[in-house]
Write a protein that binds this DNA or RNA. Structure first.
Lengths: 178, 178
DNA sequence: GTCCGCATGTAACTTGTTACATGATTTA
DNA sequence: TAAATCATGTAACAAGTTACATGCGGAC
């Protein structure tokens, strides 16, 4: 399971509460490994049981208390073990592709509108990623920032490919809808 | 749930047994929506309950009997309903990205080897997809074949993007490993 | 006074994965 | 004679989703 390891990577960069982790999963890490707060809380609990992280309650004024987690030595050992272990290459699971395969049964204008929606969503994400790149990774970066940048580059390439694919589909289905 | 609908699309193209569906999911459909035979049998059972498909036992000689499923009118109505309904744009969930973000803690040569492995796997898939394209979709295609081709084009673009990303990562981490 | 952000959770359910189980026929 | 293909399933478990639940403080 990679969620545990994504959390280890994130907490190893900086300690944080479940809530803070959930926010990071909405922003950086989560661009390539999504997780909801429910999943995160549940997984943190298990990770405490495995001894990979420890949680410390921190009182705050004018805010609810929080429990800040940090990675233990056991956790770092596990992280290194996982990093050295081969994994499965990812592959795209795309509902839109299933819909396009079923295009014969579909209402063409509605399907085109759906492809346009997806195109817009991917283009929007691309803009977000490019903005992050310009803001955080302009010029030469090294160390941790470079690793983050390389991951972001993956997201940029993936979203570009998806936008271009949607365009190809739209062109093909619009120009000659037979 | 899209597995049900992927099965509807596939059975709507041609009737088939659970086993045959599992094979299709290994080849065409499954390039963009993977499913194991266990999932398929379980889902077919539920779809029979929902009245979307019916199964007919077919005796075969020198082979085990099989149950061939076909889509009912109810199933076709459901398929059209789903096709018209908006869905979530896909996004890439990549374990390798998590590993690259954790590169600080990793053994660099081992991580590079892992990226190379993934690069090779994506390049291999790309070759497979391009071979299918040349074999089945050379020249102008129309109708169902065109829809299949467009989906395959998505796979080609995705794998190309992943190969290029791996190359970018390898170059960055090799040339200046700080 | 209503909505947003912070903060943590439980419960129910759906999906996906892994292991186990059986058994005939064809191919190497 | 061993392995691969055809054919269907059960069971246990892991992971992901959706809905529900609570409550304070600050901003508008």
């Amino acid at each position: 399971m990679a969620l545990e390891h994504a959390i280890l990577v994130s907490l190893d960069e900086r300690d944080g509460s479940g809530y803070e982790l959930a926010r990071r999963f909405e922003r950086s890490i989560g661009f390539f490994w999504a997780a909801t707060h429910q999943q995160i809380y549940r997984t943190l609990k298990r990770m405490v049981g495995e001894g990979w992280v420890v949680g410390v309650d921190v009182a705050q004024d004018s805010r609810p208390d929080k429990r800040v987690y940090s990675v233990t030595n056991t956790g770092r050992v596990e992280l290194r073990r996982w990093l050295a272990q081969p994994g499965e290459p990812s592959f795209l699971r795309d509902e839109l592709a299933v819909k396009i395969r079923g295009a014969e049964r579909a209402d063409l204008p509605a399907l085109l509108a759906e492809v346009e929606r997806h195109r817009a969503a991917h283009a929007e994400r691309l803009v977000v990623y490019l903005a992050i790149e310009e803001r955080d990774f302009a010029g030469e970066v090294r160390g941790r920032a470079r690793h983050q940048h390389l991951v972001l580059r993956g997201g940029i390439r993936a979203e570009q490919a998806l936008v271009e694919w949607c365009d190809e589909v739209l062109t093909a289905l619009r120009e000659d809808p037979k």
